[in-house]
Design a protein around this nucleic acid. Structure first.
Lengths: 330, 330
DNA sequence: ATCAACTTCGCAAACATTTGCGGAAATGAT
DNA sequence: ATCATTTCCGCAAATGTTTGCGAAGTTGAT
């Protein structure tokens, strides 16, 4: 007891060589059926499990994919992780998950660690998409493929998988116009993130091109609380008939203000959000939203990575289309 | 390029032996300062990172903790994971996370996989706490310590870390009585889980002992939707003045029904839940709750595991005390 | 009896690292 | 000059596994 079984222990007990035991367990044709049987029996009896470290050392493949996210506890990331884990597992890969906590230094350390573990590939959502990617370029020269997801640097040197940010915003804007909304309050997040810029520009572009006479007020909110205050204030003054939220965080704040004002959806005020769908389902009526599914993204990202592991291809930018999900708030 | 640097590559370039290089990088006193310098320079130049697999094979320590949860994408688990990752990382441990998807077979496979990777320890929340733990006992004989968290089997043979389920329920019941509620609807979850039983019994016990004349209606709900229907129905008929929810899931359903009935909190109806606090913060006023923090639990669990790794101690059952968090719904 | 062919298995190297031990060179003391 | 000590480094084994190659042993044909 204590130390786990090894090929050697099995081999000495059976008076066989290590190589024979190894081959027997792998159904190598060179080994006779009778010894295969004996070996396998003893192996299961001894609860033998191959030492992954020895295997990886020998084969130079770890069957582990590294995953770096700013934070695990975030509705988007966790569904991404869940999907990636599931997708990878089906092909025999496991996940090593690291948090960078919005700290570039920690992020760099994470990369080092994953390199030490000789992971076969890395999935990463960077802490900020504005800084230099030379460190990643240098890193990828070491032979470990990197795939960026969600928050991606703007370069074509790497595989990227992200949401159709512009498309989602355009979809949202068109829906709002179709529903004949005339006085709109649109909430956007941290303006330093490229995702915010993209969504905002696409959103506004639709209204700029529209012939309709529509009043559009755009607000940048850095937190849920700020969104609540902005909406509460707007409700008192310019009385919008529609509020658009580009993220769950903002939606939460907006809904608090709306509840406090005791407004009824969708009659007195209508809502549209960009979300993965969980938060919208908490309200009654449920919030209509443009879906950006972390789950789908995780599936796609892992799939792409595995594809690349099998036969290296050119870097590709994959964009996950978004779709309109009817709630009762619009 | 391509293959990562190794001790051998460094050693041949410098006309040194592998062992000297290895020692130089570790600041071994036997090595002169001048060669240390040379070695370190070349090492950083070549982006040398030790091969974790070779190290682990040699040292028989993996510095990896395995984590098995039914599902990652769940508000409780993800904060648990985040905390455990952080806590472990500070001591040089990383996490290998696996999902069992509420499937005992998958759970068994996960254990196998973690054994293959020779993880130093395993943190697990079992899919159901009612089945045999003999498999775990057998497994732990292989030398890998197991710690159960949240959903724990009832045995004293293992370390366990879980919420103070009875205490939380007792706390809740006493608070409700103190607030002079007289007609209470209490929602509990899946009755097959021991956590449900414990909470329910402790909750009811308080009312049984109470001298007050209180009407208590207890309902078992298997889903958020069912909770919504139960509450909606109760609101029409026995008109409770208070709703207690033992989980976030039930709270979500209850709140939908309450919103639809357009009741005001806490005047027309009051709410108390057991939660980690996220969902309660979404409403306005925020829901008062008894906190059961996944984050705290993760920290505790990982800390206990590392403690045990340093010097093996007797199995211990750790219980995380719960606390009352004032919202505005009671 | 000879040789070929096939079946079944073992030897040994390789993967990258750690570490006990021993050895050469340099220094110092006598 | 001799010996002891110190400084610095290399040899080699060990971790558990995979795999090319070769070597017995068996079988069958001639």
């Amino acid at each position: 007891m204590g130390n786990p079984a090894t090929l050697k222990k099995i081999s000495t007990q059976l008076n066989l060589s290590i190589s024979t035991v190894s081959r027997a367990l792998k159904n190598h044709p060179d080994i006779s059926e009778s010894t295969k049987r004996k070996v396998k029996e003893l192996a299961t009896l001894m609860d033998y499990e191959p030492n992954a470290y020895a295997v990886n050392l020998r084969t130079n493949k770890s069957k582990v994919i590294g995953l770096i996210v700013p934070s695990i506890s975030n509705m988007f990331n966790d569904s991404f992780i869940a999907a990636a884990e599931k997708e990878g597992r089906e092909k025999g890969y496991t996940l090593m998950i690291l948090q960078s906590g919005d700290d570039p230094v920690q992020e760099a350390e994470n990369l080092k660690l994953l390199k030490q573990y000789r992971v076969d590939g890395i999935l990463i959502s960077v802490v900020t998409d504005s800084y230099a990617i030379t460190s990643f370029e240098k890193f990828s020269e070491s032979g470990i493929p990197i795939l960026f997801f969600d928050r991606v640097p703007s370069t074509i040197k790497f595989d990227t998988v992200c949401m159709a940010d512009e498309e989602a915003a355009t979809l949202a804007a068109n829906a709002i116009i179709n529903y004949k909304k005339k006085n709109i309050l649109a909430l956007f997040g941290n303006e330093e993130l490229s995702i915010t810029k993209k969504r905002k520009e696409a959103f506004q572009a639709v209204f700029d091109e529209s012939k309709e006479k529509i009043k559009l007020q755009v607000a940048a909110c850095k937190s849920s609380d700020q969104a609540m205050r902005v909406v509460a204030d707007a409700l008192l003054h310019n009385k919008p008939d529609h509020v658009f939220c580009m993220s769950d965080e903002l939606l939460i704040g907006a809904m608090k203000a709306i509840h406090q004002a005791e407004l009824k959806m969708p009659k007195q005020i209508s809502i549209l959000a960009i979300s993965n769908g969980f938060i919208p389902s908490l309200y009654s009526p449920e919030i209509t939203y443009i879906e950006t599914s972390g789950f789908e993204l995780g599936k796609l990202a892992m799939r792409r990575m595995l594809e690349n592991l099998e036969n290296k291809t050119e870097p590709k930018a994959i964009i996950l289309p978004s779709r309109f999900v009817e709630g009762g708030s619009l």
